[in-house]
Design a binder for these strands. Structure first.
Lengths: 102, 102
DNA sequence: ATCTTATATGATAGAAATATCATATGATAT
DNA sequence: ATATCATATGATATTTCTATCATATAAGAT
């Protein structure tokens, strides 16, 4: 581990929230602005903005402003192979697991 | 994403706790039983057991019982490349980040 | 200039995760 | 057989995270 525990905690914590995961999953289909993300997910605007900010902080999404719209794109370079790795891990070790809330 | 949001949440949530991260980091050096983990980290026994259970549920560590001792080993096949990937990501995108609690 | 639309920010109540406490189980030693 | 050591489990107070609310900023549109 090259970085501080805090940094790993921030990174993994960003991926341990179902709403953020849904946003990530949506952005795999392509760029979206905040309003579009709200429409596609059914989430509230402020919640989406808060969560996008956290994802951006972690370098998981990139933002580009176009007029009054702000488009968010997934960092595919990281997220794609990460998810692939996790999926393979789960297939091998977690297929049986049922997630009870903590 | 091939699995349920709940499963990803469980997986990433397991890695977003500083005590579990420290345990993982310790186990990179080799197998340890619970008492040894407590000694090496300074953590309480019950807390360590609870956290080891969660890591085991996620397939991040494997346990083998030897008499009254239970040895925990890291799932290096997953954790090593995972951490390598995250370290590279952080080096590229998060070098500036300072983690304020939430 | 003012209104509307798009997005962001700060504060906080409520929800969820965590460490700790009390106790249980299981293994070995005496 | 019982005392001790190693580990696990269940309950809960406390800490931490989250969604929501109220409001701000900024860009078009009228």
């Amino acid at each position: 581990m090259k970085h501080s525990l805090d940094t790993y905690q921030l990174f993994f914590g960003s991926l341990s929230n179902p709403n953020r995961l849904q946003i990530i999953n949506l952005l795999r289909k392509g760029k979206r602005n905040v309003t579009e993300i709200c429409q596609d997910t059914g989430f509230e605007q402020t919640m989406v903005s808060h969560n996008l900010k956290r994802l951006e902080t972690c370098g998981m999404v990139f933002a580009t402003k176009v007029g009054k719209y702000k488009y968010y794109a997934l960092n595919k370079k990281t997220i794609r192979p990460l998810m692939k790795m996790i999926d393979e891990h789960m297939h091998e070790y977690c297929e049986h697991v049922v997630h009870k809330k903590n």
